[in-house]
């Protein structure tokens, strides 16, 4: 097994604050706003992508973003952990707070933001490392190299991602040797290993077969007891199955945001109705 040898400097401020979770979580009531998005506008150069998005995402609930391709739902998701920083020419206005932390503020450390907000991508992207190293990656980059801690985190995360039984005997093998669904669950295990507060999922099942999709959905359902989950999906049935609230986006605007049951039974907007009944999309 290739063990990472470089350590982050001990005083780099990159330590995982597991205690933050412990202190905050019991105090927050289930269903209270966890993420607030206030008048967010985003443009790539001259291309205005998000228009005045304002919404609040509940703590420890699953919130689904739906909408046709190019409507800005993934872009908004990537605003939440500042992945848009990686793109040149992006301009963002408005305010996003996560548990009271203004994530775009100049004083906010982007590393800290991403540490607290995990992300699972559309295409599963394990590192070219062993399964074990994939899972403990977040801890290693935070400077944790204690074997017992890593082992514990690895087992807990893989169990949390419902992957433990399948891989416990081959943790040393490459993470790239797993099946598509397993790889995606490995990515989820990797995300929850650092105990984030929020998990963002960008179409996590779009490349998976129906059985693997079902497993991930069950997993999401189980995870929402501990984590706030935001999921972008093209699959309306999936949104209906897993989410508590659904937001419908169209051409960069938030058209409707309501409890999932309401949206799929009595949509409040003509556009939403047309979209979820399949008239366009």
């Amino acid at each position: 097994m290739s063990q990472g040898t470089t350590k982050a400097p001990p005083d780099s401020g990159l330590r995982i604050r597991t205690e933050v979770k412990a202190a905050v979580a019991p105090a927050a009531d289930k269903g209270e706003p966890d993420i607030t998005i206030d008048a967010v506008n985003l443009s790539y150069g001259d291309n205005h992508v998000l228009h005045d998005i304002t919404m609040a995402i509940d703590d420890r609930r699953v919130t689904a973003f739906i909408g046709p391709s190019g409507c800005g739902k993934s872009t908004l998701l990537r605003c939440l952990n500042r992945m848009n920083d990686l793109i040149d020419n992006v301009r963002i206005t408005g305010k996003i707070t996560v548990k009271g932390l203004d994530i775009n503020a100049a004083t906010t450390d982007v590393i800290e933001v991403r540490r607290r907000i995990g992300m699972v991508f559309q295409k599963s992207n394990p590192f070219p490392k062993s399964i074990y190293e994939n899972v403990v990656y977040g801890l290693r980059i935070a400077g944790i190299n204690d074997k017992a801690t890593l082992d514990e985190a690895c087992e807990r995360s893989l169990k949390g991602a419902a992957l433990w039984e399948e891989v416990k005997d081959r943790l040393d093998e490459s993470g790239l040797g797993l099946s598509g669904g397993q790889m995606q669950r490995l990515c989820i295990a990797r995300a929850i290993a650092v105990e984030p507060e929020v998990i963002l999922m960008d179409e996590p099942c779009s490349a998976l077969d129906p059985i693997a999709t079902l497993k991930i959905e069950e997993l999401i359902y189980g995870l929402k007891d501990k984590y706030t989950i935001v999921i972008v999906t093209h699959n309306l049935q999936q949104a209906a199955r897993v989410s508590d609230k659904t937001a419908f986006f169209w051409l960069g605007r938030l058209v409707e945001y309501s409890p999932t049951a309401d949206m799929f039974t009595k949509p409040g907007d003509k556009l939403t109705e047309d979209y979820i009944t399949g008239r366009f999309g």
């Binding site: 990159l14 952990n81 992945m83 990686l86 590393i111 800290e112 991403r114 540490r115 995990g118 992300m119 991508f121 992207n125 394990p126 590192f127 990656y137 977040g138 980059i141 935070a142 990515c187 990797r190 995300a191 650092v194």
Partner: peptide
Amino acid sequence: EASLAMGA
């Protein structure tokens, strides 16, 4: 992106 999103 996966690595950066982990806070690396």
